[in-house]
Amino acid sequence: MLDDFFMRALLAGIGLAMVTGPAGCFIVWRRLAYFGETIAHSALLGVAIAVLVDLHLVIGIFFTAALVVLAMYYLERRDTLPTDTLLGLLSHGGLAVGLVLLSFFPNMRVDLQALLFGDILAVSHVDLAVIWGGGVIALGLLWWIWRPLLAATVSPDLAVVAGLKPERAQLVFGILLAAVIAAAIKIVGVLLIVALLIIPSAAVRRFAASPEQMAAGAAVVGMMAVAGGLFASATFDTPSGPSIVVTALVLFILTRLGRTLPAGGAR
């Protein structure tokens, strides 16, 4: 049953989880869930633009998402509106403009269902190369900004005084997140990508004694969720994104059942 398309999806998913684990930890630590949703929602605008100018979908999504990150970076410093209001503006603005643009092309073969929920049949050899190549670069970048980003997560002031340039690290992380989300769209879909970032991190929190352990653990749980979800998707013919997220959810619930397990500090 290990058809070629299935192996490709599995490898792509594992490459993805390798990055969503550590990146997802920062989403949880820095309370960026809504920021992640905003980037994901902007993906539809990215698809519309990719269709308009005839680009690869993932590239279109990445550039739009990166623009949203830069816009947010700028607005947070210039505007007096609260962060979640700005995010709502960009998130739903991007989504609405994308949908309106797409409606101008009724003959376009854009599979909205696949975009929203993921489609394992859609992973090509090129996608696989992009995900693994991009994944290795993303992990390298994350390793490079790890200390300043982590210090800034605890206290931006401490990071600045220690000369760690946290602003640069935060911007790099935002762009990296745009790339991760663009790469994840085919497997998990726009609607559920943030779940793949958050649930594995949340599942391993109580077993981790250090940030690095939590990041590695989240990557492993993410890979398990991807593998389990894809098997379920292939077996029961369910959409891949929801199947992966349901598997992650089951793993999360399992970690919560063992109440007698040693808890690593706060829960």
């Binding site: 949880v28 630590w29 820095r30 309370r31 200390r147 982590l150 210090a151 997560t153 605890v154 401490l158 990071a159 220690a162 760690l164 991190s201 949340a202 929190r205 981790a208 004694a209 250090s210 940030p211 352990q213 939590m214 690593g264 500090g265 706060a266 829960r267």
Partner: peptide, 17 residues
Amino acid sequence: LNPTLPLTVRRLITLTG
């Protein structure tokens, strides 16, 4: 501190270097 961030005594003091 965000309680979801696991930090021990020695990890916290080496955060900035």
